[in-house]
C-alpha cells in the first residue's frame, strides 16, 4: 500500500483528468512538487471546488493543459501569478464553474447517475460558456420551472493529502468529507499521508467517521509536512511568509524558475519529503 512519493507521482499519466482540493482543505502540495519533478504533461486539473498553490505550481511548470474550476487564488497572498500568465499566453484552456457545481457533479458520479440537477446559475454568463451544462424544465413541476442539469464528473485520478494512513489503505481526513466525495467519484485515488497509523483506522469508533475506506484508495505515499506551505488542519499552520514569497517570485518566469530550483527540483527539498 505504501510506496515512495515519486512512485506515486509516476502513476499519474500525461493527460489525466486529475481532481484535487484547494488551500483550505488537504491540498497535496508534496505530490504536486513530485509531479513537477516527474515532468508530467497535459494534465486536465479539476479544482474541488477551487484551485490554489498546487495548481499554480503545476501550471507554471508546464504540466497543465486544461483547468475546470470555480476560482484560482492564493488567499491572503493574492492572485495566482502563473495561472494568470498561462491564461494570458493561451497556454491553458480554462472552464469556469461555480463551487456547488463541482461538488454536485462529483456527487452524481458517486451515485453512478449520468447527470444531476442543481438550483441557481440561471442568468449567469457561466452557462453560455459551458456547452457541457444544459437547462431543462422541471418535469415534476405543474408550472414552468427551468433548472440546470450538470453532467456527472468522474476524474481519472483523485489526489489529496491525509493526516493518517494505515496498511489497509484507509486514510483519515477528519471532517473534510468533500474528499470522501472526491474519492468515491474518482476512478483511481492516490493519497499522500502525514504519517502511518499502526493498526486499522476503522477499528476505532471515534476515528472511523473521518476515514475514507481503503476500498477507494490505490496507493499511499508518506509525505511529512505534505501540504506545506499550506497548513494541515490543527497539525500545522500555513507558511504565510513562504506563500507571499512564492506569489512575489512567481510574477515572472525567471522568478518562478528560481523558485522551482530552490524548493521543488533540488535534492535537499526532495529528500525532506
Amino acid at each position: 500500500m505504501f510506496i515512495p512519493l515519486d512512485d506515486l507521482a509516476a502513476r499519474i499519466q500525461d493527460g489525466a483528468l486529475v481532481a484535487l482540493p484547494p488551500d483550505n482543505s488537504l491540498t497535496p502540495s508534496a505530490l504536486a512538487r513530485a509531479l513537477v519533478r516527474r515532468g508530467v504533461r497535459g494534465l486536465r486539473l479539476v479544482g474541488v471546488p477551487v484551485s490554489g498553490y498546487a495548481t499554480d505550481l503545476l501550471i507554471g511548470a508546464g504540466c497543465v493543459a486544461e483547468l475546470d474550476t470555480s476560482a484560482v487564488t492564493l488567499g491572503e497572498a493574492g492572485a495566482a501569478p502563473r495561472f494568470l500568465a498561462a491564461l494570458a499566453a493561451g497556454e491553458i484552456v480554462l472552464r469556469d464553474a461555480t463551487c456547488p457545481a463541482m461538488h454536485t457533479r462529483l456527487q452524481a458520479a458517486e451515485k453512478g447517475v449520468p447527470f444531476i440537477p442543481m438550483r441557481g446559475v440561471l442568468g449567469s454568463d457561466l452557462l453560455a460558456h459551458r456547452p457541457d451544462w444544459t437547462v431543462i424544465d422541471n418535469p415534476f413541476s405543474p408550472t414552468k420551472d427551468p433548472i440546470l442539469l450538470l453532467p456527472a464528473l468522474a476524474p481519472d485520478v483523485g489526489i489529496f493529502h491525509a493526516v493518517m494512513a494505515d496498511d489497509e489503505g484507509n486514510v483519515w481526513v477528519g471532517r473534510r468529507r468533500e474528499l470522501a466525495t472526491l474519492a468515491h467519484a474518482s476512478k483511481r485515488v492516490l493519497v499522500t499521508a502525514e504519517r502511518r497509523f499502526a493498526g486499522n483506522l476503522l477499528a476505532d469508533e471515534t476515528l472511523a467517521p473521518g476515514v475514507i475506506s481503503g476500498t477507494y484508495v490505490e496507493a499511499v505515499a508518506l509525505a511529512p509536512r505534505g501540504t506545506w506551505p499550506i497548513g494541515l488542519l490543527d497539525e500545522y499552520p500555513a507558511d504565510a511568509a513562504h506563500l507571499l514569497a512564492y506569489a512575489r517570485a512567481a510574477r515572472t518566469r525567471e522568478g518562478f524558475a528560481a523558485y522551482l530550483a530552490e524548493h521543488v527540483a533540488s535534492p535537499v527539498a526532495a529528500a525532506a519529503e
Binding site: V50, A71, V72, T73, T98, M118, G120, L126
Partner: peptide, 9 residues
C-alpha cells in the same frame, strides 16, 4: 479569481 459559489449563493 473566478465566480466561487456566487452563481448559486
Amino acid at each position: 479569481p473566478g465566480s466561487f459559489g456566487s452563481a448559486f449563493m
